[in-house]
């Protein structure tokens, strides 16, 4: 689990609450439910599995998705305060990891940290 600090999560409410921001403005840390969860992928995940956070552009759709290390999209990060900042940081090349908190065929909750 090196490279990011789980303790930061305790200071952050995430969601509709503004994310904790320190340093260069990209030290984001929050917990959130994914939208558009892919049931077959999410059902195979376990607590503490690590997902890659990446920016996807398909036509006019620009979204931040969480993928398994094999490249399968689990779902989309959306509908929370800090999404536009997260996109800006990803565009600057900052890397993030999403750690699975709970996952089932219908729901996937993740904690997102800077790498």
């Amino acid at each position: 689990m090196g490279g990011y600090a789980p303790d930061q999560i305790k200071k952050t409410k995430g969601g509709a609450t503004p994310p904790a921001v320190v340093g260069d403005g990209c030290d984001l840390a929050f917990q959130i439910d994914l939208v558009a969860v892919q049931s077959s992928i999410s059902a195979g995940l376990n607590k503490n599995d690590e997902l890659v956070v990446s920016l996807r552009i398909q036509g006019r759709i620009r979204s931040v998705v969480c993928e398994t290390t094999a490249g399968a999209v689990v779902g989309t990060l959306a509908a929370f305060r800090g999404l536009s900042r997260l996109i800006g940081c990803l565009e600057q090349g900052v890397g993030y990891v999403a750690v699975v908190e709970t996952a089932s065929f219908s729901r996937c909750s993740v904690k997102v940290f800077r790498r």
């Binding site: 939208v35 558009a36 006019r60 759709i61 959306a78 509908a79 929370f80 999404l83 536009s84």
Partner: peptide, 9 residues
């Protein structure tokens, strides 16, 4: 953030 969410879909 809302605009970014709408753009995602």
């Amino acid at each position: 953030d809302v605009e970014a969410t709408l753009a995602s879909f």
